[in-house]
């Protein structure tokens, strides 16, 4: 494969996505054959662009909160004072991953009602796990002689954390954030079943009214967003890994 081909494909995908979101009307003839009985071709109960932005906003807020909490927790259990919690926290991560996102989403509803809140909570909780797990991996697999050198140079615990441990773990933590964002994009889609304003609405509306055009446009937008964001974050991760002298596999 030529080196420029993937970049070209990505660029084309971005252009298509932006075109579709700003001027969905242009694509009407393409999707027309998928509808029956003169049903609407382009989603008509809200702007696709607004839904996309709301979708991204939920994921962004939840991931930021999850990142702060998960990294803080990982730092806590890797300090001497929190070392007692380390084995347990590993088990909890293992257990937590067996909870399907849908279950977390549905179970949040009785606590906070319908709308954006249960979606945010589910995204936040489910987003914690990969970030916590990766932060833990990053902070516990630091090269021993580098840590020895940091201590030997007379850095205090705080200086070691900020100047050495966190920068060196950054690529691995970013990997966790990337997984978390991808899961978040998917979970936010399901969030529309509990009345959150996300792109899932388009797909669900399509499923309910048997409108293939809705299903397809909703599915394609979400899929394109996920692929592009995953790709972008992977690139950031590779760059940081190179910068930190940690080669990723």
């Amino acid at each position: 494969m030529k080196a420029w081909l993937p970049a070209l494909l990505r660029l084309a995908l971005v252009v298509l996505l932006v075109a579709f979101l700003t001027n969905p009307g242009w694509f009407e003839p393409l999707l027309k054959p998928l509808t029956e009985n003169n049903a609407p071709v382009i989603y008509n109960q809200g702007s696709l662009l607004t839904l996309t932005l709301l979708h991204l906003r939920i994921v962004l807020i939840a991931t930021m909160a999850a990142t702060i909490v998960a990294v803080a927790l990982a730092i806590l259990v890797t300090r001497p004072a929190g070392a007692e919690f380390l084995p347990l926290s590993r088990s909890l991560v293992n257990i937590g991953q067996t909870f399907p996102p849908v279950a977390v989403l549905a179970l949040a509803v009785p606590a906070v009602g319908f709308g954006e809140k249960p979606t945010l909570i589910a995204l936040f909780l489910y987003g914690l796990l990969p970030i916590f797990e990766n932060a833990l991996t990053g902070l516990t697999t630091l090269p021993a002689n580098v840590m020895e050198a940091a201590r030997g140079a007379g850095m205090t615990g705080w200086q070691r954390l900020v100047k050495v441990e966190l920068p060196l773990s950054a690529p691995i933590i970013l990997g966790g954030i990337r997984l978390s964002v991808v899961i978040g994009l998917a979970t936010a889609t399901i969030g529309s079943t509990v009345a959150a304003k996300t792109l899932g609405e388009v797909i669900i509306a399509g499923l309910l009214s048997n409108n293939l055009a809705f299903i397809l446009q909703g599915g394609l937008i979400v899929a394109a967003l996920a692929v592009l964001i995953y790709d972008g974050l992977s690139a950031v991760e590779r760059y940081t890994a190179r910068r930190m002298g940690r080669e990723t596999a």
Binding site: G152, M155, L168
Partner: peptide, 29 residues
Amino acid sequence: YELRRSIGYAIQGHGLFPHRTVAQNIATV
């Protein structure tokens, strides 16, 4: 930590900070 800043310390496999340049590494203490 203050004691260690006043004493040089070099170890096997050098233990250089991989995320810092050579100049930044030397300037640590």
